[in-house]
């Protein structure tokens, strides 16, 4: 093997990032050149729209990274795994709600789940937690309320996540053994120094050095997730500013097409679940309610970033299930919502 998974992942991410930036720049340039409006005015509107999303979203992103850093340093997944029931049904239910005790977004959830599996957490709970945690946590709750208020979108987001994550978890509860699902290294005991297996927990740090470590962790995470937030916000602002309302409505009004478009967008943008609600806002006027819900539920479960991380933990076939099951379930729920509920 010439390419290690880590090298390959870094390479794939950088290529994707570069491609995204280039496509975005090309689209913006083409739209500005084709538009009859004054480019300076367009740039000013674009800048206001972009900064609006960024300024509203970034506090939640920062809080998320801080919480993640504090968890990383002070709390062990094992502390929580101890209280998980062993029977499939109650365990799966606990898995869906565990995110409230252990708030991680989709970027942080995979390493945590790997560590939980290592500690013997049942497969179904792990898979459920993996899919549910990016939404089922207090920071996402707060940002979704800030964006949409207390209403159907908020309730829909949490209920759909509960149903889909719990459903997929139960599929795994009754149909799978860990050896068939996990990559061998996720099953094996710790190997010192390896980066792709669970590391040896360091001794718990003191309060002061613990805070310092948590902040350093938050810095690293901010630069990674901030990048995705900014690319996502640039795209949303460009879309609002440069693409005409008629084109958007043509895409966004179809009960099926709109859901598929928003799912692809959620997958490609890979915006952290703590702030994706603010991006979804940009689509509310033009896209169907079901497609907004699909964006807010499918995106946190599966996107480019989490798929690449899944591949480090699960076998390929499992990763396929982890993508396809939530995709189909949120697609069907999104279409059903469009046909039956007036959001």
């Amino acid at each position: 093997m010439t390419e290690s998974p880590v090298g390959l992942r870094i390479f794939a991410r950088r290529t994707l990032l570069l491609a995204a930036v280039l496509i975005l720049a090309g689209l913006v340039l083409a739209a500005v050149l084709l538009s009859t409006d004054n480019p300076v005015v367009l740039l000013s509107i674009f800048s206001t729209r972009f900064l609006g999303i960024f300024i509203e979203a970034v506090p939640f992103l920062l809080l998320g990274t801080l919480v993640s850093g504090l968890l990383e340093v002070f709390v062990r997944p094992e502390d929580i795994a101890r209280y998980v029931p062993r029977r499939a049904l109650p365990a799966t239910l606990v898995g869906t709600l565990m995110g409230f005790a252990f708030p991680v977004c989709e970027c942080g959830v995979v390493p945590v789940v790997r560590r939980l599996f290592h500690k013997g957490l049942p497969m179904s709970v792990g898979v459920t937690f993996l899919l549910a945690a990016p939404v089922m946590n207090p920071i996402v709750l707060a940002s979704t309320i800030a964006a949409f208020g207390f209403g159907p979108v908020l309730i829909g987001r949490f209920v759909i996540t509960l149903v889909v994550a719990g459903g997929v978890g139960l599929v795994f509860a009754f149909g799978a053994r860990p050896q068939e699902i996990l990559q061998p290294q996720s099953l094996m005991p710790v190997m010192g120094g390896g980066t792709d297996v669970c590391p040896t927990p360091a001794p718990r740090p003191g309060l002061w050095s613990g805070f310092h470590q948590a902040f350093e962790h938050a810095i690293d995470e901010f630069f990674e997730m901030g990048r995705d937030l900014i690319i996502g916000s640039l795209l949303a602002a460009a879309m609002q500013t440069l693409i005409s309302q008629e084109v958007l409505l043509a895409l966004g009004r179809g009960p099926v097409v709109s859901v598929l478009v928003m799912q692809v967008l959620a997958f490609v943008l890979s915006v952290c679940s703590t702030v994706d609600a603010f991006l979804a806002l940009a689509f509310v006027g033009t896209f169907t309610g079901g497609s907004i819900l699909a964006f807010l539920t499918f995106g946190p479960m599966v996107d480019i970033k989490s798929t690449l991380m899944f591949l480090g933990v699960f076998k390929r076939k499992t990763v396929l299930y982890l993508i396809l099951l939530p995709l189909l379930m949120t697609l069907l729920i999104g279409i059903w919502t469009n046909l039956n509920v007036n959001l």
Partner: peptide, 22 residues
């Protein structure tokens, strides 16, 4: 101390830094 998180943390590309500056 040990950095026990994702290996890509901490070592980000120049492109990513440029994006954060936007």
């Amino acid at each position: 101390h040990q950095h026990d998180h994702d290996p890509e943390h901490g070592s980000i590309s120049w492109a990513a830094l440029a994006v954060i500056a936007v």
